[in-house]
Design a protein around this nucleic acid. Structure first.
Lengths: 170, 170
DNA sequence: CGAAAATACTAGGACGTCCGACTATCGGAC
DNA sequence: GTCCGATAGTCGGACGTCCTAGTATTTTCG
């Protein structure tokens, strides 16, 4: 048992909300509410941790993800539409990220040789270097750090994978 | 076993990334990377579902949460500092949300009778009405909907609660 | 009692995400 | 062959989140 009430331990706001939901006759929706609220909060916590590590590299998680996608691609370049699909974000979000990465000299826009509508984004050497350095830091300080038990990590991935699959995410 | 490859089922981008992480010698960090990436994606999916239901009410989830906090308070009013603490968001985010709620006539700013630094936010009748209507919709269409198995929902909450607790969230 | 530290809130700005609208370009269908 | 729908990207705007000041007050303490 943990959770011994101490002066500096505030009660969990989400557990409180869940209790209130039940008391108001919304028992059937209490867990769902708690799940979604938890998701929102956990995402902000995780993002803050990641961005703190990324900050010295002058990059954000959104841009890091794009960089890694290019990093893992065979030619080090991908069309924007494919980036949008893989990252599962709106095309305008990709435009936004690419603008900043390009301004930082990390990637380059090239025109597609066969489809003049499409734009190819190419990872430049500085971008590749930054991707490797940032990954080393993230792996040691966040992804591979024991901030939570390994079992819980895999459980989390499994549950979310189920959700994502059931909601047609892939 | 699910996941039979079909023409309209793209491979899971996160599972792909996890595999690449392992292949590049980052096995120790692969699960952590997958967990955080999953969290980011799941949050966006959940938020999109919630906001779709909230849209007809002309409100966002952030403002809905603030409204519900006031709704559950004894006097129907709370100081901004307390709202910031309970919602676990930055004070400026509360200012932002209150500005919009006030503009919509859903809440009201009052000055604290004893501390002239503080501001009390009071839920107005239209705000209370909207909170009830929005909750009814959310409970039936999202929170209480079988978008995922009940067991998975509670597992999700449990795991995230563990993460939140371990990271000092409460 | 008065100065320093803590607290409450707001202003301005950076970012990411999405939506709707708009311009090119590609591909079929007739 | 030409027109029309689908596709690729970008632009402008709305929002939420955070951070860094900056202004009031209140509290603490020398």
């Amino acid at each position: 048992m943990t959770c011994v009430p101490t002066a500096d331990r505030r009660p969990d706001p989400i557990a409180e909300a869940r209790r209130l939901w039940s008391e108001h006759g919304w028992e059937h929706a209490a867990d769902g509410m708690a799940a979604i609220t938890s998701l929102m909060r956990a995402q902000r916590i995780a993002l803050a941790r990641v961005e703190a590590v990324l900050k010295p590299h002058a990059i954000t998680f959104a841009r890091y993800e794009l960089l890694m996608l290019l990093y893992f691609s065979r030619r080090g370049s991908l069309p924007m539409a494919l980036i949008s699909e893989r990252l599962q974000v709106h095309p305008t979000s990709v435009t936004n990220a690419v603008d900043r990465l390009q301004a930082a000299g990390l990637v380059q826009r090239l025109m597609h040789p066969e489809d003049r509508r499409a734009t190819i984004i190419e990872l430049l050497p500085p971008g590749r270097k930054l991707a490797e350095a940032a990954t080393a830091d993230l792996n040691s300080q966040v992804f591979g750090a024991p901030w939570i038990t390994p079992a819980a990590v895999t459980t989390l991935v499994d549950v979310i994978t189920e959700i994502r699959h059931d909601t047609g995410d892939f």
